[in-house]
Nucleic acid binder design. Sequence first.
RNA 1: GGAGAGGUGGCAGAGUGGUUGAAUGCACUGGUCUUGAAAACCAGCAUACGUGUAAGCGUAUCGAGGGUUCGAAUCCCUCCCUCUCCGCCA
Length: 422
Amino acid sequence: MHDIRWIRENPITFDSAIERRGLRAASDELIELDTQRREVQTELQDLQTLRNETSKKIGIAKGKGEETRQLMKEVNELKSKMLGLGETEKTLSAELNNLLSEIPNLPSHDTPSGNREEDNVELRVEGKRPKFRFEAKDHVTLGENLSGMSFERAGKLSGARFVVLSGPLARLERALASFMLDVQTIEYGYTEVAPPILVKDKALYGTGQLPKFASDLYKTTEELWLIPTAEVPLTNLVSNEILPEKELPMRVTALTPCFRSEAGAAGKDTRGMLRQHQFNKVELVSICHPQNSLEEHERMLGAAEQILKRLDLAYRVVVLCTGDLGFSAQKTYDLEVWLPGQNRYREISSCSNCGDFQARRMKARFRSGNEKGAQFVHTLNGSGLAVGRCLIAVMENYQNKDGSITVPEELRPYMNGLKFIN
RNA sequence: GGAGAGGUGGCAGAGUGGUUGAAUGCACUGGUCUUGAAAACCAGCAUACGUGUAAGCGUAUCGAGGGUUCGAAUCCCUCCCUCUCCGCCA
């Protein structure tokens, strides 16, 4: 959510930033609405002042046993005027709010312009891709041959875009998740959290999924929504709070299932478990001081990368262009892991700095020392990592000619020492 | 899910229609005193918005949202949450 006062003072900066996102300039319309709103509000408040004063007079007069009919008449006249103004004020506020709530965050100056995935900028390529002396299979073939991955059975239960893992592959998935959580908590100081995965619409509004992206989400019959990412419960942990400055940065992580309806993704990645309606993810969220969000962003990227490094998987780091940037983000790094089965890099993590955009929506603030005012915190979120996709990466990168899979060293302690899945 | 009790400032806790943004205590901040500290004493101490160059002034906020009233923390309605008891349940 943008600060209308900031827009009022920086209309040109605001417009050029949202234009980089491919949106039309909006400051004129917003400022006009806001001006009207304030005029009406001021007028209304003046009337309220008068009403309060007159009501007090009535109280005093009654106490003295004096006549109050004339005063009552005055107040009643005021009230009818106020009624109309009150309605106008409400309408204008709602209109302004609706417009503001659907405008995405402004891209940071170092977010490259562009409107397609191809315009993302590759920063670095890390690790070395495996070389196979046979033709690499994809995870579907590998998994089905190992009898540990069934899309058919998942189809019976839930339809397309679901999978059933079983045996060592199911365990490998669990091992990956445990490994990730251990690295993030022990080495990077994130606090493990087990949050609800059903949330109210307010929470989704806070992180920016609502009101605009309802069609990407699953809603229950009880007015609760399934989370599309643990970013939602983790970030909203601090909604409507004023934190003491010394609690910043607050770093939290959670392993949760994530649910996405994948509306609009028809025909995309239909094979395999790359794009599912349900998947597990270890999420990282940092709540930090505005001065530190840039370095916190780099730190978070490092924490996500660490998982890939330890698993010895090849990947590249990409900065998303304005057209690929999520609604709430100012700047996003994607990590793309090498998938031999697809012969290309695929997204496995996305680390975003949201600045104070989400904090404003959810009213998450901090106060330093004894200063009077509270300031909005900055929020960041990143995958550390997507577990399902990481499973794919391990399977495809660690496959052997006979279709077996070598268990990466780091994961063996989590697999009861198992070295091969076959 | 049923029955009951309750939600007031950072905390505790008054307040049941009138000049109450809200007594009092604690905590916190500044000052006096003191060699220093404690104690004591004095003063200050909510948030958001509007308005103004500013000092300031104003509006709203006593779980949330509506309503009654000239006037609501106080009365009415709806919802949320917490606690106790019962039922159900991993």
